[in-house]
């Protein structure tokens, strides 16, 4: 990852944390100050979906042209995507505790998100239970693509069909409706970009660590 991107990520997130906590937000009933969760909760889901999408892209690349590198990237993107998903669900529960009264409300959106996390946890269970590394990479790539396709209706379609209290679904207004004077946009968009860049950064570090670990293992094998 390019150095200037890392600097952009850090600057954006410092800006998001100060501006997100200090700047004015629309005054609304029930939501009140919890509307600031938008800057931290929603970017997690954007990040998760984008990271999973990149993971699927690498899985497809692996199937077309197998190499250890694409497999490693596919796993690490899924890994950090899962981390973003967990953070998203935790921040969502914090928000729901104040806005809905309970952390887990059984809202379709919450359930869909929980199932998505289950799908990707199953992906890691699958990887853990195959010993042959080449076969592991191929089967998990297949499951990755299949799981992503199964996830799309769960988080994008079903919550919009059924009644949901989550903003932006089930006929509830999304953030466009709350944010009448567009005062939240200057913080929200940088937040999305900043968190996503941090995700990419973590992935690049993890991929590098894995590469080095494998090199060390190879050296050990040679010395034996």
């Amino acid at each position: 990852m390019k150095n200037w991107l890392k600097i952009v990520a850090v600057v954006l997130l410092i800006y998001v944390h100060t501006a997100g906590l200090l700047l004015d937000v629309p005054r609304l009933n029930i939501l009140n100050e919890t509307i600031r969760a938008l800057y931290f909760h929603v970017p997690m889901w954007f990040g998760m979906v984008l990271l999973f999408l990149i993971s699927v892209y690498h899985a497809i690349r692996y199937l077309r042209n197998p190499s250890i590198e694409t497999d490693r990237k596919s796993v690490e993107y899924a890994n950090i995507g899962l981390l973003f998903g967990i953070l998203g669900i935790v921040t969502g529960m914090l928000w729901a505790n104040y806005a809905w009264g309970t952390p887990w409300h059984g809202d379709p959106k919450q359930n869909g998100a929980a199932i998505t996390l289950l799908v990707y946890l199953a992906y890691f269970v699958l990887r853990g239970s195959i010993e042959n590394s080449e076969q592991r990479a191929r089967l998990s790539a297949v499951y990755n693509i299949f799981a992503f396709a199964a996830m799309v209706p769960l988080i994008f379609i079903i919550p919009r069909l059924t009644s949901s209290m989550h903003p932006g679904s089930g006929g509830n207004p999304g953030f466009n409706m709350y944010d009448l004077d567009s005062s939240m946009r200057p913080v929200f968009y940088p937040a999305v970009i900043g968190w996503f860049l941090v995700g990419l950064w973590i992935v690049s570090i993890r991929v590098k660590v894995k590469e080095l670990e494998e090199k060390i293992l190879d050296l050990h094998d040679e010395n034996k």
Binding site: T116, V119, Y143, F146, A147, A150, L154
Partner: peptide, 12 residues
């Protein structure tokens, strides 16, 4: 593994 992999996928 069959159960773990399939349940999330068939939920939709």
């Amino acid at each position: 593994l069959m159960a773990v992999l399939s349940f999330p996928v068939v939920i939709a």
